Computed example of a mutant assay.
Amino acid sequence: MFVVRPIAPSDYSALYDCAVESGHGFTSLPVDEGLLQKRIARAQEAFARPHVAEPGEEGYLFVMEETRTGAVVGCSGIEAAVGLSDSFYHYRLGHEVHQSASLDIYNAQQTLTLCNDYTGYSELCTLFLRAPYRRDMNGRVLSRFRMLFMAEFRERFSQYAIAEMRGVSDEDGNSPFWSWLQQHFFKLDFTQADYLTGIGEKTFVAELMPRHPIYVSLLPAAAQKVIGQVHENTRPALKMLQHEGFRCRGYVDIFDAGPTVEAEIENIRSVRESGRYQVHIGVVKQPTRYILCNTRVADFRALQADVELHDEQVVIAPDVAEALRVGNGDWLRAVAL
C-alpha cells in the first residue's frame, strides 16, 4: 500500500535522491542540501498552523511512502500563494499588429512580454515519482490528492491554481529556447540559470532579462518550435491536468518556454466531484476505486483504495482505515479514481 503524508525531517535523504533523479529543468527540487532542509522545515511549519484565514507564504510538501517497506517513492507539493515575497516571472504570449492601409499590408507579430501576472495564485508543484513506482495509478494519486487537500482546506488557497510544465531540453539540460537568451543576454548555461532560480536567486532575471517585448519571429526556428511545448517526460502530467480542467492561457516559462496551465480551484474536476463521507469500517462488498484523504492537516493521509459508498457513508477495510488514521464515525474526502 502507498500512503501520501506530510514530509518529515527523516525524509531528507529520500528527497535528495528525488532531486538528483528528477534531472535538469526541475526547478522546485534543487540538488542543494541547505535548500532542501529549508523546504522541509517550511512545510512542517505550514502543516503545524491549525488555522489559516487566507493563503500566504505556506508551502505544503508531501511524500508518498510504501507502507510495507517504509520507502519514500515520490513527492509533490502545493504553494499557497506564489510571488508574495519573491518575484514570480513568466513570459506572456501576445500579439502586436503592424498595418498599412495605403500599402494594403497587415502583419500580426507574436510577442513575449516579461510579467508577474500570477502573483498570489496557488501553485501545484514538485511532482516527482521514482521510476520503479510509475505504475498502478501511483502517479495519478500523487498528483490528484492535492486537489482533495485544496478542496478540504479551501481557505488556505487562492481562487486560482497554476502548474508549470517542464519545457523541452535535451539529456544534458540544454534548452533551445534558453540558447537564444544565453547568447544575447545572460552568458549563463541553462542548468546554472535554472539552479539559481530554484535556490531563490532571482535578482539576475530582473537585471538581465530583455525589458521590452520580444518578437517571436526574430528567434531561431529551434527556439520558436519549443514555445509552449512540454518535455517528453512531462506529457502524462500535462494530460492529467488537462483532464482536470487546467488550460494554458498563453503563459510560458522564462527559461525553457514550457507552458503554465491554470484553473479556478472550484472548477477543478477532482475538487468539484469530490465529497465528504462518514467512515464505516467493514467488508467492502461492491468495490469501486477511489482516492481518499482524511480531514486533518498536520496528520494528513491520502491513498487509493476500493470502497463502497452509501449516500454520505463510505465503507472501507480495516487496513485502509489504519493507514488513513481514521475510525468509525470520522470523515473522509473522496473522489473516484
Results as ranks from 00 to 15, higher is better:
residue 58 E to I: 03
residue 153 F to E: 01
residue 39 R to V: 00
residue 15 L to D: 00
residue 187 K to D: 15
residue 225 K to L: 09
residue 273 E to Y: 11
residue 191 T to Q: 10
residue 61 L to H: 00
residue 329 G to Q: 06
residue 8 A to S: 13
residue 131 A to C: 13
residue 193 A to T: 06
residue 210 P to F: 01
residue 16 Y to R: 10
residue 230 V to P: 13
residue 33 E to Q: 12
residue 103 L to G: 01
residue 300 F to V: 04
residue 147 M to P: 05
residue 289 R to D: 12
residue 83 G to I: 02
residue 165 M to I: 12
residue 227 I to H: 11
residue 160 Y to G: 03
residue 325 R to A: 09
residue 321 A to S: 13
residue 233 N to P: 05
residue 99 Q to P: 03
residue 175 S to K: 12
residue 99 Q to A: 08
residue 282 G to P: 12
residue 308 E to N: 11
residue 74 G to Q: 14
residue 6 P to F: 12
residue 268 I to P: 06
residue 240 M to T: 13
residue 257 A to L: 06
residue 13 S to R: 12
residue 85 S to A: 14
residue 257 A to P: 05
residue 140 R to Q: 15
residue 204 F to G: 11
residue 175 S to V: 15
residue 285 K to I: 06
residue 5 R to Y: 01
residue 163 A to R: 06
residue 174 N to H: 13
residue 206 A to P: 08
residue 143 S to M: 15
residue 240 M to A: 15
residue 262 E to R: 08
residue 328 N to T: 15
residue 289 R to S: 14
residue 32 D to Q: 05
residue 251 Y to N: 04
residue 176 P to D: 08
residue 165 M to P: 06
residue 214 I to K: 04
residue 73 V to G: 14
residue 62 F to P: 03
residue 232 E to K: 09
residue 11 D to Q: 05
residue 131 A to R: 13
residue 60 Y to P: 00
